[in-house]
């Protein structure tokens, strides 16, 4: 369960172990960890395979590249994790990310708004999209799929209207989101790790987080236990699009411009990352750490296939197969236990 930290096997803590014992308990712990997180095992295996096939893979520079490549999808996926655990889905996150980039660039460029304020307005635009999603789902009782599919179109449309279909330049404040600290550590990676930790904190420690699991596990039981399901849904979709807005800024920073067509299709990558990370689309299950692993799995495959000069067409085929395999192995494991 998400709340309970896994208790270490007693032999590892209480006795002073002999070498063989220690090895035994280590393999036991490894097996427990593997059993609980198939995605982590897949990620490590992928890492080993890639390292064997390409000497460049394990270089610091390349690993940081993988982190940067994973960052946007991972940040989108953290927001998506809240929604999926609550039993919903958010198809609009890619469009919301693009809209945030456009609004930010538009405000700073066309209206000459202070760049930092422009960023705040951009995030505000993203949050507004999420609140509309939340109102439609919680109060309008629309299925999440429909409400967020509508928002996918509306937010993308607004991004095109505002930008007139052409890229908008970004301020240096936005460019910071795509830069590095100390000359080597990419900001996207820093933001990804920070938001991952924040998502884990929200899920495990806050009222909203625990309510998300309860709502996804059994919405009626949650309601009859006094949880304000509708307000929490508003918060959940608001969180998802806030994370999407930050992802949009990271993407705009990397591209050094606001692209109206940015992040198109990323919502599916985000959903894939959450599901590979062990969340159930039926709701009630999932973890922020799993989502991070899921996003890294996708990035490692793309990176590795690039290093091996596999065509991007074939990459799509491989990624599709990996998604199916990851979830299949998870399903089989759960059925056995």
């Amino acid at each position: 369960m998400p709340t309970e930290s896994t208790a270490p096997p007693s032999s590892a803590t209480r006795t002073t172990p002999s070498g063989a014992d220690r090895l035994g308990s280590l393999t036991y712990q490894a097996r427990t960890l593997a059993g609980q997180n198939g995605a982590l095992v897949a990620l490590l295996l992928l890492g080993v395979v890639m390292a064997l096939m390409s000497p460049v893979f394990l270089s610091t520079q390349n690993l940081l590249n993988v982190g940067v490549q994973a960052a946007v999808v991972a940040i989108l996926a953290f927001g998506q994790t809240f929604v999926i655990i609550s039993g919903g889905i958010d198809l609009s996150v890619g469009s919301v990310a693009a809209l945030t980039g456009i609004v930010t660039g538009f405000m700073a460029g066309t209206y000459g708004v202070n760049p930092v304020l422009a960023i705040v307005l951009g995030i505000g635009a993203g949050l507004a999209c999420g609140l509309v999603n939340g109102v439609l789902v919680a109060y309008g009782r629309l299925p999440a799929f429909i409400a967020t599919l509508a928002m996918l179109s509306v937010a993308r449309g607004l991004a095109l209207v505002l930008s007139d279909g052409v890229p908008v330049p970004q301020s240096s404040a936005v460019a910071w989101f795509g830069s590095t600290v100390w000359g080597w550590l990419p900001i996207p990676v820093v933001i990804m790790v920070a938001l991952g930790a924040l998502a884990a904190f929200i899920l495990n420690r806050t009222y909203t987080g625990r309510a998300i699991y309860a709502i996804g596990g059994n919405e009626e039981a949650a309601r009859l236990s006094g949880i304000n399901v509708r307000r929490q849904k508003l918060v959940i979709y608001g969180l998802a699009s806030s994370f999407a807005a930050v992802a949009g800024l990271v993407l705009a920073g990397r591209l050094a411009s606001g692209q109206p067509q940015a992040a198109a299709g990323y919502e599916l990558d985000a959903i894939a990352a959450v599901v590979i990370g062990g969340a159930s689309l039926a709701g009630g299950q999932g973890r922020a750490f799993g989502t991070l692993v899921g996003a890294l799995v996708l990035a490692v495959i793309r990176n590795g296939l690039n290093l091996l000069n596999v065509s991007s067409f074939w990459q799509q085929v491989v990624i599709g197969a990996v998604i199916a395999l990851a979830v299949l192995s998870d399903t089989l494991r759960r059925r056995r236990s």
Binding site: R210, A214, A222
Partner: peptide, 17 residues
């Protein structure tokens, strides 16, 4: 259907209210 989050732990369920 109405009382329990079946997939959650005893502690989670007891803590709902």
């Amino acid at each position: 259907a109405q009382g329990l989050v079946l997939g959650a732990s005893v502690a989670e369920n007891l803590g709902l209210v």
